[in-house]
Design a protein around this nucleic acid. Structure first.
Lengths: 216, 216
DNA sequence: CCTACTTTGTGAAACCTTTCACGAGCGAGC
DNA sequence: GCTCGCTCGTGAAAGGTTTCACAAAGTAGG
């Protein structure tokens, strides 16, 4: 297994999605062509991506839906659970605490933190908001979710790293500096707004230019 | 001005961020090197990106912070406002309705829709949730924000397209099919979770491999 | 068993993006 | 006015990703 690129991992996520749907529809096998079509990419891309991890298909038949789904689930590490905490109990943090998608993907949010005295002590979706100062390595969090304003994000990241998290999911529009051993993924709404704004602003002048990454 | 790539536009967004901060700090000029450092990329990348739009810098001096910020603001289309509606008044939709970041970037959310009778009629952040059926071209929405479960996303997208939106910001984890004239940008939390899960799962085995896109 | 058809897995080619490296412009100090 | 040091803008090179195209392997039907 050679090096796996970021884009490949992201597409794995897409394949997983499609396979769950297709499995629910009761289909037994699926070809790379069909799998590709659903997410708007090419069949060669699907085969190339999957071949980086092994040979999951059968020539002439395609891929066994449930089997491939389970393989990808394991590859993505979705067959285990992660202990996570959310920092920031504002609009976005609150939404995340109530969001079922987290649990579905194996993230158990077991604590919520904030610095605002107004919010500390409140109960959101069964969790009591605790003061950020209480965040410590003793809780054994593996993942920290940052849902604070941009200005606080780096300090929170530092605190999370000090508390021993291995990964950070960052919803604040700021680049974080963390040790190499900590993985960061960003959900950057601001950037998507602005990218959309750019596209709309230039749409009349230039028209749709490239299809490949025009949408995700 | 040749063709502008997606990654370049996304970085423009980053530069804009940094420039706003730096302007607030009162700095007059900034070099490509400093600008790059803040977002963890190379100075050559910054210069290349900017040069695609024109010559904004002065050799020996760098870039004038406020001037470059204003140029990028205009390039991104942030110097105008967009009429937007949010469809889906669940956890995420509600958070978006209360989120100040939208207004800051020029998105005026002027309506909220949902299909759940439980939610219709409620007031969220000053907006009354209306039934999805009332979504029509008469409202003159330029942008639609989808914050529904995945299963409903495509139908909502179709309705938005029928109502004449030019762009869609999609928070549902599903690829949307829309006409070429409509631009879609996706904020895909699910994919980021899964990408993080993958990275953590394989971290011990492989170690940090590449820095370039390790985090954003 | 043999032919016709389907689909995978994969090297090679095409394409795109990033990084390098350097000429050229600019201010400062003398 | 001249030199020095700094920094931009940009072709060329390097590096990475996607697409192409085809051999190999399988099924189905007779």
């Amino acid at each position: 297994m050679t090096h796996i690129s970021e884009p490949t991992v992201r597409r794995l996520s897409h394949y997983y999605r499609v396979l769950e749907e297709v499995a629910a529809e009761g289909k037994r096998m699926i070809s790379s062509h069909l799998l590709a079509e659903r997410e708007g990419i090419t069949s060669a891309q699907v085969r190339k991506d999957l071949s980086a991890f092994g040979s999951f298909g059968r020539r002439g038949l395609g891929y066994h839906v449930e089997h491939l789904r389970d393989e990808i689930r394991a590859l993505l590490g979705l067959d285990r659970r992660w202990r996570a905490c959310v920092v920031g109990a504002g609009h976005i943090g609150t939404a995340l605490l109530g969001y079922r998608g987290f649990a579905d993907q194996g993230f158990d949010i077991v604590a919520a933190f904030d610095n605002d005295p107004e919010r500390i002590g409140r109960t959101i979706d069964g969790l009591i908001v605790r003061p950020l100062g209480q965040l410590s390595a003793k809780d054994g969090f593996e993942i920290g979710v940052i849902a604070t304003p941009a200005a606080a994000a780096q300090a929170v990241a530092d605190a999370l790293v000090a508390a021993g998290v291995q990964g950070i999911l960052n919803f604040a529009p700021r680049k974080l500096r963390v040790p190499e051993s900590v993985t960061v993924r960003a959900v950057d709404m601001t950037m998507e707004f602005e990218s959309l704004s750019y596209a709309l602003t230039h749409a009349r002048a230039a028209g749709p230019r490239r299809r490949r990454r025009a949408s995700r």
